[in-house]
Design a protein around this nucleic acid. Structure first.
Lengths: 200, 200
DNA sequence: ACGGAGCGAGAACGCTCGTTCTCACTCGGC
DNA sequence: GCCGAGTGAGAACGAGCGTTCTCGCTCCGT
């Protein structure tokens, strides 16, 4: 049992690096096979089709990504009011990773969202989970819940822009904008912020 | 001369609808051919390769998109201080178009950015042009130039989020956040905003 | 009237992809 | 010791891709 689990991980490791780094359609099953050092038959034994492998790739990446973010925020000793900003610091760190290439889900959606509903659904779920996590932090900070969506938009924009420009600076700009929004919301409390739009 | 120009446009019309709607790799040259009603030989006469067609598609879309935005802002009778916000109204309108599927350049980048440098370059140029346009509006509004980048991030995040969720609401949330940022920047003027990050 | 350049329609080519099959071999239970 | 189930390595298959070629035909200058 742990044997097939190990090969499963090896396959997913290889698939993640290839799919994320080069795009899903660009990478053939044979590339996954040779990168994972597994035989083609075993590959199809564990994942009965490329679609299944793609789904597993996205699922695992979603969990990894969110766990990494959460544990970073948890480890930080920032007061609750500033924990939201730690998210943007974490983004900056992510952006500076050498193989950063934007959001795997946005990329997958652009590539396959129109033809593969499961991919579109996985992307939606990922973004929705992130937004909810952000909403929790906003709530802990005592800020109005309506802030979660604009903060998510800033993060989203930063991810895409960092990918396109190859620079981590968008994380900084997004962080400062987030700080301003939080400050404005807490200062004037419920007033200006009640107009900041419905939860979504 | 105008004859080949007309077929060129017909090809590009078909290519744009297909590439944007389904993704670039998904759409074969044969699909472009039959959608444009042009013979395969003519297609390759006008665009010597699929890569050339993709480049032309992105170039024309960039021009169209920016021209549409600019003419919308120009036509609006909003005072300079609020013209920036018109951008987000225009985004909302775009998001509600029935075949809206996010930013063509972000999608193309996710699909081909890692393997096709021209695509990556086109996406970069498109985003940079948008950011510069926004910077012009920010300047006209008398707001500090450092605002252009966070506003661009909001717009970018709204585009992606609207595509994923299929809802135009992110445009509204981004607009309100932009309004708050502008108000905060103009109120406190150069103070809080000088920290809003370098131009990029 | 005629020769040839250009055209439309689609077959053809070479390649790659996702997936399956072959086949020699290994190895654990009777 | 042996049989059969399962393995590894890779060939094979059918489909689809981007691109080019073939082949009648048309149409224009002389």
């Amino acid at each position: 049992m742990t044997e097939t689990e190990a090969t499963r991980e090896r396959i997913l490791d290889a698939a993640e690096e290839l799919f994320y780094g080069q795009g899903i359609q660009t990478v053939g099953m044979d590339a996954v096979r040779s990168a994972s050092g597994v035989t083609l038959r075993r590959l199809y034994q564990v994942f009965p089709s490329k679609g299944a492998l793609v789904e597993a790739y996205l699922l695992r990446r979603d969990e990894r990504w969110r766990k990494s973010l959460a544990s970073c925020v948890e480890k930080s000793d920032a007061p609750p009011a500033e924990r939201v900003l730690v998210v943007f610091d974490w983004l900056r760190d992510w952006f500076t990773e050498p193989d950063f290439r934007g959001c795997a889900f946005v990329n997958a959606f652009g590539e396959l969202g129109a033809t593969a509903p499961e991919v579109a659904e996985a992307a939606r779920r990922h973004k929705e989970a992130f937004r909810r996590y952000l909403a929790g932090l906003v709530d802990d900070a005592g800020a109005p819940g309506g802030l979660a969506t604009p903060l998510a938009l800033l993060a989203e924009g930063a991810i895409t822009t960092a990918a396109l420009t190859g620079s981590p600076l968008p994380a900084h700009a997004a962080r400062e904008a987030a700080r301003l929004l939080l400050a404005a919301a807490i200062d004037e409390d419920g007033r200006a912020v009640a107009q900041a739009g419905p939860p979504r």
